[in-house]
Nucleic acid binder design. Sequence first.
RNA 1: GGAGAGGUGGCAGAGUGGUCGAUUGCAUCGGUCUUGAAAACCGACGGCUCCGCGAGGGGCCCGUGAGUUCGAAUCUCACCCUCUCCGCCA
Length: 428
Amino acid sequence: MLDPKLLRSDLELVARQLGRRGYTLDTAGLAALEEQRKEIQTRAQNLQAERNARAKAVGQAKAKGEDIAPLLAQSEALGAQLTQAEAELNALQSRIEHAHLQIPNIPDDSVPDGQSDADNVEVRRWGTPRQFDFPVRDHVALGEGFNPANAALDFERAAKLSGARFSVMRGQLARMHRALIQFMLDTHTGEHGYQEVYVPYLVGPQALRGTGQLPKFEEDLFKLRGERELYLIPTAEVPVTNLVTDEIVDAAQLPIRWACHTPCFRSEAGSHGRDIRGLIRQHQFEKVEMVQLVKPEDSMAALEELTGHAEKILQKLGLPYRVVALCAGDMGFSSCKTYDIEVWVPSQETYREISSCSNFRDFQARRMQARYKDAQMKKPELLHTLNGSGLAVGRTLVAILENYQNADGTVTVPEALRPWMGGLTCIG
RNA sequence: GGAGAGGUGGCAGAGUGGUCGAUUGCAUCGGUCUUGAAAACCGACGGCUCCGCGAGGGGCCCGUGAGUUCGAAUCUCACCCUCUCCGCCA
């Protein structure tokens, strides 16, 4: 959510900045709502003040033992007027709030112009894609080939259980999948200063509103049927960031860095036909997420740092990648600046997204009412939130299988991962 | 699932219809004292928001939402959450 004060005071500036996203702000509509609000709120509050004054007078009269009947008679008409005015005000305020919740974050000045992923700007590359002297197999062929009768990567069995976009893994492949999670978590906690957290995988709508998935993107989520309104998390960002909802954090505790492994569940509505084959786009996948809560002045530096933490995983695994600055039109709803990290996928001869690192500034914090304070500050202030994948586990597995494949269909285990694989050097 | 207790400011904990947004303690901040610190003493100290250039003046908030009342932290109802005991269970 943007600062309501800003939306009141400089609507045209906001509209211009949001225009870079390709978003059209309804300035006339918002201004009209605001004008009504002012009028009705003043009226309602005047009536409330009058009610309070009269109630107080009754109390004082009664204490002195005076007759209160005349005072009560005076107040008769007030009640209905007040009820009416309060109802109008409530209705209007919820309309305004609803409108504000639909507005995306303002892109940072450093974000490149552009409308789609074609306009994203490559920031740097690391590593050199390997030259193969044999026909390259994709990860599906490799995984299914490990043991054709009982494939290590088995989409058919998964489909039998759950339909398309699910997977079953077995044996050494399943172990590597698990090893990656441990490796990533251990790296972030051991070398990058993150604290590991464990969180619920089912959350209520208020948490999803806090990070910005609701109210606008409900169709991307899996929602449980039942009495309780619960959703499967689409990313650990939701439960982890929302840990500070309604809290005032002691400034001495900042920056807070949390790393968390969770499964992620996405309906992938609207991506029919894309990435049908393989592990790239699944309804359920594992991810290790990094979340940072920082002081406002530190958030841009923290974004660079956090992106570096994600890159470090790829460097240790020896996987070539590039970092891309998303253009204004390609960024997520809540973000003011995003770097995508894309890993080299040999079978597709292209870089594919494996991490997305974003600074949200105070956009999520305002929705969550997440603030911080130190002794010198008069009032608590909104903190800044950031997050990034570190990394998407399924896609990392894809990258390892394909980049480390051998001519005989086996896959070499990256050296950095071997301690988590019981020393295995090769699988398949 | 059954029975009971409870949700108040950063924390602890008073307050059961009326000048209560709330006594008090701890913590925090400023000051006095001190070579420095501690102790002691003095003072300050919730959040959100509206109108106003400002001085200042209002409104809302005692888990959440409805209700009763001239007036609700206090009464009624529903819901959420926490704790204790019993049952069940990984």
